[in-house]
Every structure is written in structure tokens, then in C-alpha cells.
Design a protein around this nucleic acid. Sequence first.
DNA 1: GTAGCTGCCTAATGGCTTTAGGCAAGCAGG
DNA 2: CCTGCTTGCCTAAAGCCATTAGGCAGCTAC
Lengths: 190, 190
Amino acid sequence: MAARVGLTVERLTRAGAELADEVGFDRVTVSELARRFDVKVASLYSHVRNSQDLKTRIALLALEELADRAADALAGRAGKDALTALANVYRDYAREHPGRYAAAQFRLGPEAAAGSAGVRHAQMTRALLRGYDLTEPDQTHAVRLLGSVFHGYVSIEMGGGFSHSAPDTQETWSRVLDALDALLRNWPAP
Amino acid sequence: MAARVGLTVERLTRAGAELADEVGFDRVTVSELARRFDVKVASLYSHVRNSQDLKTRIALLALEELADRAADALAGRAGKDALTALANVYRDYAREHPGRYAAAQFRLGPEAAAGSAGVRHAQMTRALLRGYDLTEPDQTHAVRLLGSVFHGYVSIEMGGGFSHSAPDTQETWSRVLDALDALLRNWPAP
DNA sequence: GTAGCTGCCTAATGGCTTTAGGCAAGCAGG
DNA sequence: CCTGCTTGCCTAAAGCCATTAGGCAGCTAC
């Protein structure tokens, strides 16, 4: 009946990412994707190994997009300017693409993780830190701290965890960035 | 046939929490729980409204346990001592009970959230901060920052996000706590 | 024009969720 | 005792999702 629709892994992955943003990453389903392409479910299995494979691809896509945005934001900036820019990349991405952001947190297998943009993220954070004066072991600690704060904050904020207390989250966010900048400029000795 | 087993919401919730720790919170299923009690699936629906209800109860349990541990850890401590203790409560709990920790992150409805121990957590963090010298608006910002770091760090560490780079995570963890302590003792003015 | 590849389809199995309705075990009062 | 009633667990059934096996028909290339 229906002539070939022209499915490809790429189209499926992109559509999956959009679906995630609409209904949440955990509700991304092979069936729903098939429905959207007006195609039978089994047809997708020629392009995607299984549900987990699909989710992994969406996760990799999100990590790439995020890394691209981060690279863009960091270009030509240094110090607190760069810190703010990078932080906002994560926060804005999560707001614009909640499903993709959730996907980026998807637990990847070792092979997928190796080929992911995860490395780029770490490298960019490290690049950011060159604007501050940290020696090697501390640099790694700081990379991890920044990652934790960015992810933790965004994740709690998205989950509505801050929505019950008083001051609006925008104010907190900028004060947190002030604090991190101060901390990095004045990193304590062991 | 099988005499009454004596199911109760409490037993189901506890068993659900254990199941979560064994197989992961997202794989907690009404069916598996029924299997463990050697009972038919439908039987659980007299005790639990549905799958989401079950997960919500597990989440509330985890939040309570976590709050209890935190209260315990904070008792009689102040300053950096208290900071370290509280931070370790979260990290240790996540390691001992990964499924429960994941459950604690479960998105609760407004009603469930109101009755949850979430409030206690915020209050305890605030209590911790009395050992430092922060005035009101900054105190809230700091509460949120600490929550972000704790959750973000633990969450990334559990996800294996740190396992690919060099220094071991224990070292980073203690340096991060040093850094937070320094930051709180020297919180930047707006 | 035809052979073959490949993409999408039909069919089938099995798991999880949820609801409706039934039976019997245990408790209460005579 | 023993008669009823409550209530806990069961059978049955429908719906959705994932996944696999095998078939048919376009599209491509010669």
C-alpha cells in the first residue's frame, strides 16, 4: 500500500528527539514513533536495533547538540564571561529541549560513551578553567564541581524542586554563578 | 488456594524499595512485586492505586529515610563538620540504596510533594548554613547551590560519568567539600 | 525488461497495566 | 457451633508496548 516513506536512522533519531521534547524522554516509544511516520511498528526495526538503541541515538544526538552550543558560546570568551555563557548553554538547552536534556543523561554503554560528545564537554569545561589559575589536580576537581552544579541545578529546577520556595530561580542562578566565579578565582589549597 | 498472605501498603512499599535497589527504580514493576509475594498481579491493586501510586510511595519512603539520616548526621555538628556529614549522607545513601535514591528524584505531584520530607531537607540545609555567616537572600541561594552540588555530583558519579577520567572520585569529593566550605565562609557580595 | 535488493507489511509471542466480577477465609454475633 | 458478612486474593479480559520471523512489492541496475 503506502509507498516507501523513506525512513532512515537519522530521521528516526531526530523525530525521536522531538517526541522526547513533547512527551518526555521516558515516554519515547518505538510504537509512537511508528505512528508518527504512519508506518507499522515492525518497520522501524530495520533501522534501529531496538528501543534502547533508539534512545542511545537520541542521547548521542543531544550530547552533540549540547557540545556544539557550548563550543559556540565559549568562542571568544574567557573568565566569568565564559563561565556564565557555558552555564547558560546547559540551562537554556534544558528549558528549550527538556526531553533531549533528559536524553543526554541516559546511561550509555561503554562503547557508546566512548564515541559520545561527553569528552568534548569535559574538554570545554577544562578550557574554561584556563581563564582561572588552577593547577592540574585541582583543575579536574573543578571540572567535576562545575559539571555537578550545572547538572544538579538544572535538573532540580526542571523537576520543580525550587518552585516551592520564595526567591525566583533566575536570581539564584546568577548569584550561584557569581559564587562559582569567586570560588574559582580563590580556590582553596589542600 | 493460597491462604491470605497479608499484603499491606507498607509491606508493598518496602518491598518495592528493595526491588528498586536490586534492579533499578525504573524497573520496579507491579508484576515483579506480585511475583515476589507469590501472589497474582491483580491482588496488589486493592492496596495500591496503580503503578505510579506505588512509585510515589517508594519515593516518599526514600525521602523520609534520607531526611532521618540527615537529621542524625547533623546532630551536634556545625560548620565544615556538618557540611561534610550532610554531604556524605546523600552520597552514602545513593551508594547503599541506588534504587531508593533514584526514587527520591521521582517527580511527585503537588499534593504528594507537599506531604513529602522535601521540606525537611531544605530546612536542614538551612540549619547547616547557620554555622556560616549568610544573610537571608544569600542563605536561600546557598541552600540551592548545596542541593545542586550534592545531587549533581552523586547523580553523575552513580551514572559513571566520572569513571572515565583519572583522579579517583573520593579525592575529588573531599576537595569539592573543601571548596564549598571555603566558598560559604567567603560568600561574595552581590 | 528483468533480477535482486531492500523497505515496509502481516502475524505472532510475551510482558506489563488496569478493571470487573467471583469465591472463600476469617471474624462477629447469635 | 454456625451463619453471615467483610474483605483479601483470584480468574478473566482488554489494551499497549517490544521484538522476531517471514513475505511481497517497489526501486535500481544491468
